[in-house]
């Protein structure tokens, strides 16, 4: 198997000098390429913090996070920006599309930041919009799209740079059941077709049921790590050392 993420003894504490809050506590985690993993747990369990650490948006106090052979904890702020651009795709709970750009421009922006050739940008954007089923909405501004459609565009944007990992923070939280199901279908299809690694934090039972691996966090620690071969079979592959 090809290890894409190797997190080792990762700890993150907020307000270390005042009232310390240990958001992530000595987490060990290995993610293989092409996994479709859900991070679950109650509010305040450290899901978002762990995603931010893996995504290089925040730095751990201790430990290392190696993504595709690079220890991102050792990268400078500028190196991290470049690393994120080329290796990480983000899908946010609130979609976070740029309102002044059309759906297509939102997707193309990432490739432009990567300085990809124009023809390739156009081609990739067309393919992605075909995959998310929004070819007819490419030139529409985000405000004219439904929540579900916006989140699909956000997924296309996350995939535009062909990242090693797509990190999704509560991607279905603001969606109705139909839109959520539709989004999960698309993400799952892209995961299979492009062998792209997906990690998402979620409370949503529908998402958890579609995940092929579920990591449960409690108080910043991994309480359980369950992998499923299909929807009817589950087995534990690893548990937290504690």
């Amino acid at each position: 198997m090809d290890t894409i993420i190797d997190a080792h003894q990762v700890t993150k504490t907020y307000n270390p000098k005042a009232i310390p809050v240990v958001a992530v506590n000595d987490v060990h985690m290995h993610i293989e390429r092409g996994e479709f993993t859900a991070l679950v747990g109650p509010s305040g369990s450290g899901k978002t913090t762990l995603l931010n650490l893996i995504g290089g948006l925040d730095k751990p106090d201790t430990g290392s996070i190696v993504i595709h052979g690079t220890d991102i904890t050792r990268l400078s702020a500028n190196q991290l920006i470049d690393f994120r651009l080329r290796n990480i795709g983000f899908v946010f709970q609130a979609f976070n599309l740029i309102p002044v750009l059309s759906a297509r421009e939102n997707v193309e922006l990432i490739m432009q930041l990567q300085r990809a050739p124009k023809a390739e940008i156009r081609k990739r954007a067309a393919i992605l919009f075909d995959q998310i089923g929004l070819t007819d909405k490419m030139d529409t501004r985000p405000a004219q799209l439904s929540g579900g459609q916006q989140q699909r565009v956000a997924v296309a944007r996350a995939l535009a740079s062909r990242p090693q990992v797509v990190l999704a923070d509560e991607p279905t939280a603001n969606l109705d059941s139909k839109s959520a199901s539709n989004l999960l279908d698309i993400m799952s299809k892209l995961n299979r077709e492009e062998n792209m690694t997906f990690i998402f934090s979620t409370h949503d039972q529908r998402v958890i049921e579609r995940a092929r691996r579920v990591i449960t966090l409690v108080d910043g620690k991994i309480a359980s790590d369950t992998a499923r071969v299909d929807t009817s079979h589950r087995h534990d592959v690893q548990t937290n050392p504690e």
Partner: peptide
């Protein structure tokens, strides 16, 4: 602020 944070998160460097 939020949008700018998001742009940097996505990979927009400081110069851009």
């Amino acid at each position: 602020t939020r949008e700018i944070g998001m742009l940097v998160a996505l990979g927009m460097n400081k110069l851009r």
